[in-house]
Write a protein that binds this DNA or RNA. Structure first.
Lengths: 386, 386
DNA sequence: GTCAGGTTGTTCGATCATGATCGATTGAGA
DNA sequence: TCTCAATCGATCATGATCGAACAACCTGAC
């Protein structure tokens, strides 16, 4: 509603008179930028009398937003004895949240975010989107224009030129932005973006090492390149193979992204065939739903799990439902949501002086039956069973 | 983010006068960093009379925030009978902290950690060590056996086999461990180690891009391979060169680690010579102390800074002291300490269910005079001046 | 037009922060 | 234990800053 001028008011000290609210905003900006202000300097800069500024400072001090000192004000300091003891104000922020899916993975992230927001008396406004940059932007835009939000948590598509452009745009928004389960590239244009993401490469590595420790010496990987997670899983798997001195070139690495459900059985048969040919006795399967289907297929084909084919799923939504129950890597989804809210609220209250935070969380490995015991009678069993 | 900052800012002696509250905060910072202060030193540093400092100390002593001693003040000691008995209940946690240096870089990290610990009613026990794995271990061992600590913050040597072994040992300790300004490798044996570290590569990249934007097209790098930071600085610099399409192979990249002070002038002359030969008009210099010496040398040799040689220092301890004042990358040291304490206390109270956190913080670029304006008359001026 | 309510500016005595002086006190070394 | 230099605190002077009271101004409602 109020049209703001440029970042610096520039040449007109006494130009358009600001409303008191804008004055106080400006004052807080200066304060956050420099850590302190003098009444005199601000009064001169805004072209108002010092008394007016003093009144503003008093007002802000009552709200606990600044500490009054003789001659000016500083950021609230614990040394400030006059600080009101009623710390927890009606500090309610509105935080927008745009996630690419409302039925897979993200509900738990949202739940974590909501829990944290409750504790901080903030409100979360969620919008579902897709895994597509254009739609991401549309949803964010909708939040920005229809709601009055103080910060944004978003899990955008970061791939391709559209993804990079989207990141640049997010980086330039006037409100703080935190990416969830996404990283900003090292490029400068996104230098303000903070993020919290699960270290999926670590998780994949952990799963691979677990299979190795159980006795498997050929470990394959089944991916779903539809998901942005898959690239990290493959990276972690390859890294682990390297560390374990397993030749990656001969390892089974199949993608199921574009296999229609009708061809799934055939697809799995081909993978089992590949495993037999390469003596592969264990598979890391991205998306546990896929893992459940794969284990089911193995059981149907008489392939013993885990005796002839050990399976670790990546992600842990339904892995426990299979028979046998599937070991799975479990990303700390609740914590991702919680942390995103923590980052955004801290950023809103501390301003740009706070350094940009980028957090990785390690997933857990939940060991169930599908990966225990090591290969039994090696590839023979698998061969016999077919 | 990049912030423009006048010459007066920070801790310079005769700079802008601070408010009393800020003085007291600064005083507490110093106190937390070093454990004690002298009235004289603080008075000199802040450019105020000793009486003023004494008054501040009295004030803080009345609030129980310091213990007065003859000539200065110390952190509140239980032996101090004058302390108001309004103290809260006993500390909830004791946190050990082992840092490789007590006079460079780390005091500010300690100060941040102590400040955060105060707010969480925890106690920090600091031990100075060296940049050597064996001594790191000894100091940690000493803390473990002589004190009853609930968690450990440590900045160990992570290089070589000794470093890896040390990390394995730290990972296996029965108490939570957080690394400060160090990362654990992707290796599994350190999978429980959490860390918080400045993204020095990002900082170096930011500095390089800043120089590029100022018009420099050949940007060199001077390192100090004694420091564990240097490798990251070089990495960030090279990355940025790549992104800016500056050929790295022909770029000046010199190390000053093993140059004795006596040969320094000669060493700098050689670097200037190299810059002339390669048309290099800007240098990123690791450790701002080195940058100060380098700028001094340039001025002595009649090389105009920033006209003929622009300089950005890495680290911002003394960069503002040079003439001209040196632009510098400033790591968020206070925040590193704060965050380390946050991580360790959260880990202690939430237990192993909490996922492993690994946090990177971005440094700031403080732009001063030594890098502004771009190359003037290119390499000619540099050549003429020699 | 007028009046109420809000915001801003001016004046001036009160208050505050700081430094200088100078005895009183302290404590480390002889 | 003694001594002496360093440190401390009471007091005052000075200049800057603050706040109460009132005046001026703007705005919108009736």
């Amino acid at each position: 509603m109020t049209s703001r001028q440029g970042p610096e008011q520039g040449a007109e000290p006494a130009g358009k008179s600001l409303f008191s609210l804008q004055r106080r905003e400006k004052l807080m900006d200066e304060l956050r930028a420099h850590g302190s202000i003098t009444v005199r300097a601000i009064a001169a800069e805004l072209g108002v009398s010092e008394l007016t500024i003093r009144r503003d400072v008093n007002l802000l001090a009552v709200e606990g937003l600044v500490s009054r000192v003789h001659g000016g004000a500083t950021l609230p300091s614990p040394l400030d004895r006059t600080a009101s003891m009623t710390r927890q104000q009606t500090n309610r922020y509105s935080i927008g949240m745009v996630v690419p899916s409302l039925d897979y993975y993200w509900p738990q992230v949202i739940s974590g975010a909501r829990a944290e927001a409750d504790e901080r008396q903030a409100k979360i406004l969620v919008r579902g989107s897709t895994y597509d940059a254009a739609d991401n932007r549309q949803q964010v835009q909708a939040l920005l224009t229809t709601q009055n939000i103080n910060g944004l948590i978003v899990a955008p598509d970061t791939t391709g030129e559209a993804g990079r452009e989207l990141l640049r745009w997010l980086n330039s928004l006037p409100i703080p932005v935190v990416l969830a389960e996404r990283r900003s590239p090292i490029e400068i244009p996104a230098h303000r973006l903070e993020w919290v993401a699960t270290d999926h490469a670590f998780g994949a590595g952990m799963a691979t090492r677990h299979l190795w420790q159980e006795g498997h010496r050929k470990i394959g990987c089944m991916t779903d390149s539809n998901s942005p997670t898959s690239a990290h899983v493959v990276r972690g798997w390859l890294q682990a193979l390297g560390a374990l001195r397993i030749p990656a070139a001969q390892s089974v690495n199949e993608d199921s992204a574009h296999v229609p459900t009708s061809d799934r059985a055939e697809h799995f048969d081909r993978i089992l065939q590949l495993c037999r040919e390469t003596d592969t006795t264990a598979m890391l399967v991205h998306s546990d739903t896929q893992a459940v289907a794969f284990v089911q297929h193995c059981v149907d084909r008489g392939v013993d799990v885990p005796g002839s084919m050990a399976v670790v799923g990546y992600d842990d939504e339904v892995a426990y439902l299979a028979e046998p129950a599937i070991s799975a890597v479990r990303p700390p989804k609740q914590y991702v949501g919680r942390l995103a809210v923590q980052l955004i609220t801290a950023r809103i209250s501390e301003g740009p002086k706070r350094p940009v935070h980028r957090v990785q969380l390690n997933p857990d490995l939940i060991v169930r039956d599908s990966s225990l015991g090591g290969p039994r009678s090696s590839a023979r069993a698998l061969e016999d069973s077919l």
